[in-house]
Design a protein around this nucleic acid. Structure first.
Lengths: 319, 319
DNA sequence: GCTTGCTATGAAACGCGTTTCATACCCTAT
DNA sequence: ATAGGGTATGAAACGCGTTTCATAGCAAGC
């Protein structure tokens, strides 16, 4: 396969001139430009991108570390990321971590080794210190609502959103409130746990372990929660459900069993995914597409800053 | 930043020896190996991946061209792809095309310029000829059920699946059958159109343009179809809906309006997404996760071959 | 007439790891 | 004693585009 030197020889010019033509630099006469283009054509030349990367020290590649993709929360974020990456002329490299530290480190290592120009971590598995250690190798943004001072975070204020949801449900007269969460670890989850506990305290209710449902990510999980719910001796009268998917699964399964929403149990979803509208779920809208776009903006700047995006309650008929 | 030559100097060995240590090649004495490791430690050395890529002529990167990701069809495929890429030690580069030829060409160009070792096209926008022209630059697989002889295709047999669905509905006694499709162009879609027409002919029914609903991708689209459906003068008694999302939207909206499924209108979904189970939708299960894994297997082999995956009817309560 | 300052062009260095090839030592088999 | 074969090591070439620096011609400005 022909390289730039072959082209130069064929066109009777120097390698530098060919490079100038390739990069639209000035100071090339029309005559030589044409000669170079002709030579490229004849030899079927095309640039080797890896040589460019090596030489320029950048790849126009941004990394995205994400636990898995077939979940609307992440795929909506990703959509925002992809849309903005497109206009910023970046391509995306994908690190599916399944929440495994090992896989996440691979993404961090890629940053270190200059495979990517920046990294977005959509849901962090490693501890802050390991992440911070990689900051010197390139811009890095984490998508969680932490107020970490040294690592930029772009997200929705999950603490406030959850608190707001709690207040809304409390204002509706509920005292017995449970919630469903994706996983227990992670900043976002502990912030919600914190908000949950504080609001319970505020209304003078105890924390009931059996009212907190873990591992809730999918529609099926929502159905599973209904099973757990019916078998509870003492039942909550309302549930906050941190994903509309799960809330949808819950509502569908509940009504199949004759449990009426919101009459028997009120549910409040999160995300405002289309499924929430379809099932008439009251939900807290999170601007995930925007957050995704913002992640790209931040990570493609020299000095990324943090940003918090606003949420909005969408009242429908499930509370 | 230190490079391999600095390490060699510091350790008092040759560059070759350092490279041997880095790549676990034999023929390095323990003594030198330790010296090299010590030097790397002291200098904070790490390999520049772009130099490796340039030198090796491969990147361990596979490209995925996909119109958009926040749709379960693609995100399920992607999940399969990501899972298999992980075990095959590939990373993924993402080209979100929005069905624009320009974006798809970027992916093809990336293959040509050796940015990626192979390319998977999940839904093709360009014509076969342009795709074929890039085959010489690396392995390339298209995810559609075409029987193209020169380009490997991995997919479900969409023609057969649709035909099977038609027969199933016909066997249930329906004669007035419509369908919903994502987009009209594209192999998969025309195959379904073909199956549709053939089966209509088989039962001696005319093709009614108003019974074919286009641009059906999301839950909202399913709701929209209900609107169009109710305004039809002559209504189909059954619909094939090529995505469970859309079928779900249809069923929810229909029942909200007092249209009973399957009594007033029967619907048959495709994919067997969790939402289908939740809404008791009869559907044709497509093994998309497996197809995704297979795409990676094919594209990471020297000579990719085609493969067709089987579908399966899942009988529930919507037909 | 002489200095500035563009325009135009190319040689060479640079980014950096891998791989080939040559060399040298030491031990075993004949 | 000698050929053969494995172990160990390094110089140099290779993959390839970009960028710096030096050079030279030519025109405008004083």
């Amino acid at each position: 396969m022909a390289n730039i030197r072959d082209v130069a020889k064929q066109a009777g010019v120097s390698v530098t001139t060919v490079s100038r033509v390739l990069n639209d630099h000035p100071y090339v006469t029309q005559e030589k430009r044409l000669a170079v283009e002709k030579a490229m054509e004849e030899l079927g030349y095309h640039q080797n991108i890896n040589a460019i990367h090596l030489s320029k020290g950048e790849t126009r590649l941004l990394g995205v570390a994400v636990p898995f993709i077939n979940h609307s929360y992440f795929s909506t974020l990703l959509n925002g990321i992809a849309d903005r990456a497109l206009v910023r002329d970046y391509n995306l490299v994908f690190y599916q971590t399944n929440y495994q530290k090992g896989e996440e480190s691979k993404a961090l290592e890629a940053l270190k080794r200059k495979q990517i120009d920046g990294l977005m971590i959509l849901s962090r598995a490693s501890d802050w210190n390991s992440v911070e250690a990689y900051q010197e190798f390139g811009p890095l943004v984490v998508c969680e609502s932490s107020e970490h001072t040294r690592i930029p975070c772009v997200s929705v204020d999950h603490y406030e959103a959850f608190r707001y949801g709690m207040r809304y449900i409390i204002d509706k007269g509920h005292r017995h409130i449970g919630y469903c969460i994706g996983r227990r670890t992670g900043t976002n989850s502990s912030l919600r746990e914190k908000a949950y506990c504080e609001e319970l305290e505020y209304i003078g209710e105890p924390y009931r372990k059996s009212w907190v449902f873990n591992n809730c990510l999918t529609i099926e999980d929502g159905k599973r929660v209904v099973n757990e719910y019916v078998s509870l001796k003492e039942k909550p009268s309302a549930l906050l459900i941190t994903s509309d998917q799960v809330a949808a699964g819950f509502r569908m399964e509940a009504e199949k069993r004759g449990i009426r929403v919101p009459h028997d149990v009120a549910i409040l979803g999160f995300d405002n995914h289309p499924i929430a509208e379809a099932l008439d779920l009251t939900t807290i809208e999170l601007p995930l597409h925007e957050v995704g776009m913002s992640l790209v903006e931040k990570v493609s700047s020299k000095n990324p800053s943090s940003a918090i995006y606003p949420f909005e309650l969408v009242e429908r008929g499930s509370v």
